[in-house]
Computed example of a mutant assay.
Amino acid sequence: MKKLVAFDLDGTLAESKQPLQEPMGEALADLLDVANVAVISGGDWPQFEKQVASRLPARADVTKLWLMPTTGTKLYRFEAGRWHAIYAELFDDAEKTKILESFDAALAATGFTPERTWGERIEDRGSQITFSALGQEAPLEAKEKWDPDFAKRKVIQADLRQRLPELSINMGGATSIDITQKGVDKAYGLKKLRDASDIALDEMMFIGDAIFPGGNDYPAKELGLDTVRVKDPEGTLAAIAGIVACLK
C-alpha cells in the first residue's frame, strides 16, 4: 500500500510555469484524502506558491502536502496556518560565479542561441542555478517548439558536465537545465523526503514526464521507486484517478 505519491511539476501537473488547472487541483484534493502528496521540481518557492499552493481548493488537506522546490534542496510545509521552509541548502558565492561563467562558455561552444528571448535566461534560486533557453518569461507555445525531444539540451548538458564535473546537471521543464550540488537530483530530494516524513521509499511512488536517461525525473526510477511516466497533465489526471480508486 502506497502512503505517498510524489509528482514532478512542469509537464506533469501543469504546463511549463503555468498554474494548476482547476481539474488538477480537484484531483490532488481527492488524492490528499487518501495519501500524502509531494511535489518536487526545479522551480523556487515563489513558483511553487503560484503554480500549486494557491491553486488548491479549500477542501484540500494541505497538512499532508510536501512541497519541495529546487529539486528537493528546499522543503515547505503548511503549519500554524501558513507555509514555511523546513530547510534550505544554498550555494556559496564562489560556486555561483563558476556556474555562471560555465553557462556562458557552454552556450558559446555549443552555439544554441535562440533568435528571441523573453526575460532573464539564468536564475539564481539559492540552492540551484537554472538556465531557461528562451528566458524566464517565454510563452508556452515558443517553449514547446524549441526543444521538444530534449536534443538541444542534451548537447548543452554534455558540455556543462565537462566544465562542472563536481556538480549535478539535469534537464527539466520545457527549456531548462538545472545545476545543483553533486548528487542533488530527485533521488536526493526523495531521500530527504523519506527522512522528513518517516515514510519509507517503498511506500512512495513517483509520477513525471521526464522518466528517461538524462531526464530530471529519471533518478526517481533509479532509486527504485515505482514510477509512472506521463506525457502531459491529462495523463496525470488519469493516473491520479486510478490511484485514488485503488487506495479507497
Rank of each mutant, 00 (worst) to 15 (best):
K3D: 10
V5K: 01
F7Y: 09
L9C: 10
S16W: 07
Q21I: 11
L28D: 01
A29P: 04
A35D: 00
N36R: 09
N36Y: 12
S41E: 01
S41T: 10
G42C: 06
G42Q: 00
G43Q: 00
G43E: 00
D44F: 09
P46C: 13
Q47M: 11
Q47R: 12
F48A: 01
Q51N: 15
L56T: 06
A58V: 10
A60C: 09
D61N: 15
T63Y: 06
L65M: 14
L65C: 12
L67A: 02
M68I: 11
K74D: 11
K74G: 11
R77G: 11
G81T: 07
I86A: 15
Y87K: 09
Y87I: 10
L90S: 12
F91E: 00
D93F: 12
A94K: 13
A94S: 14
K96F: 03
L100W: 02
E101R: 07
E101Y: 05
A105Q: 09
A108F: 04
A108V: 04
A109G: 08
F112K: 03
E115M: 08
E115A: 15
G119Q: 07
D124P: 10
Q128M: 15
F131E: 01
A133F: 09
E144Y: 04
K152A: 06
I156R: 01
Q157W: 03
L164W: 00
P165I: 11
E166V: 05
M171H: 02
A174N: 08
A174S: 13
T175Y: 03
A187I: 02
A187L: 04
G189D: 02
K191L: 13
K192M: 11
R194H: 08
D202C: 13
E203V: 06
D209C: 11
A210I: 05
D217E: 13
Y218G: 02
A220T: 09
K221V: 07
L223M: 10
T227M: 12
V230Y: 02
K231Y: 07
P233H: 07
A239C: 13
I240E: 01
A241C: 11
A241K: 15
G242R: 14
G242F: 04
I243V: 14
I243G: 00
V244C: 01
C246F: 13
L247E: 14
